[in-house]
Structures are given as structure tokens and as C-alpha cells.
Amino acid sequence: MGEPTEITDVDVSKGLVGAKRIAIIFFVVLATMVAWRVYQQVFAWEKGLDSFEAEFDVYWMNLLYTQWILEFTAAAVVWGYLIKTRDKDVFNITPQEELQRHFTLIAWLFAYVWIVYWAASFFAEQDASWHQVTVRDTDFTPSHIVLFYGVMPCYILAGVGSFLYARTRLPQFAKRLSIPFVIAVLGPFMILPNVGLNEWGHTFWFMEELFAAPIHWGFVVLGWTALALGGLFLQIIPRMVQLTQLEEELTEDMND
């Protein structure tokens, strides 16, 4: 391992959160979600009740295809960029740089959970307000198209993005794999493939929309994995303690 480069005079403790980037993340996600919601408000009841109508194809299937194209493109670009621009000298960054990068990671995590909120809370419960009220005639309903194939891929994009950011730019995550981080990203990611179980089950047993039905519990168990973010923060905090240690402070090992 080489020696870290010299400490700069800039006060690294200022502006760590990056209020501007957090505000941008917050408002861009908010605007996207509101746009989806408004689209549903306008077109769901009018054009989304019968999947065999030509207009259903126009307003809903086209939205689905557009989402898929945008999502695959965005994932390729964002994840590719993160890997392509990885720090090849990640073990020799300055403590200041590492501190700042931790806050960038946290900004990524903020984007991740902000979208998780929209998916798991807002649009997931909205799905109840649709399916308990209408006759389900396709897997691609106006609520599913937005929830499963729109919002969920967005949080997968951000979740995997945050993981790749840490893996390519932060020494302790580059050195070894964080199991809680893997769980916290992979678990919610698996909710998307779990749609397969859901739809398969709906063609079999559950013709009515009982939300507490066992067929939905795959989502539940995978949702629990989000708690592993706790483990991730317990990995980040001791490192933060080391990175912010004062000379006169006790230097005990803060790890578990």
C-alpha cells in the first residue's frame, strides 16, 4: 500500500451532505413519480380497464415499452459509467477524499430509499386501490406497469448504482464485500422477479384481490431485507469514527 497523498488545507467538514445534490435527487425523483401518478390519473380509468382495447395498447403497453427501453438504457449508462470511471488507486485516497466519498455514497443511498418509498409504500398500496376496485384482466395493469415495471427498476438502478459506487471508490468496500449491503440491494431487487410468482399464483388460486393472501408474501420477505441497511450503516459508522478521530480521543476499535 502506498502512502496517502498529503492532507489539503480545505476544510472537508463543510458541505458534506451536498444540499444541492440532495435537492436535485429529491426533486427529480419527486417529479418523475408525480408524472407517473398524473399519467395514471388521466389515462387509467379512461384507457386502462380493458387490455384488449386498441387504446390500451396505445396508452399503456407503449408506456411499458418506453419504460423498458429507458430503464435498460439508463442502467447500462449509469452502471457502465460507474465501472468505467472506477478509481484504480482506491486504496491510496486521502482521508478527506474518503470522507467525502462516503457522503456521496450516502447520497446514492438517499436516492435509493427515496425511490423505495414510492415503490413499496405509495405505488404498492395504490395497486390495492386499483385491483380491489376493478376486474383484473392482465398482468400489465395500469398500476402494475408503473409499480413493477417503472418504479421498481428505478430503485434497482439506484440501489445497484450505490453498491457499484462503493465497490469502485471506497477502500473498505473495494477490499471486501459487505454482506448487509449485498442483502439490502439484492433483496429489494428480487421483488421484481417475484412478480413471476405473484402472477403465476393469481392465475391459479387467487381470482380475487386479497392483499394479505399468502401468494403476496414473497414481496413481504424480500421487503424485510431492506433492514440490512442497518448493518450497512453499522459498517459505515466505525469508518466514519476513524475518519473523524481527534488526536486526544480514545482509539479503541469501534467495530463490532
Binding site: P180, L227, Q235
Partner: peptide, 9 residues
Amino acid sequence: LAKTIWVKK
């Protein structure tokens, strides 16, 4: 889920 496990691979 709060365990701070690290693995090499």
C-alpha cells in the same frame, strides 16, 4: 440483519 459481515468473495 445488523451484522457487519465482510467477505472476500
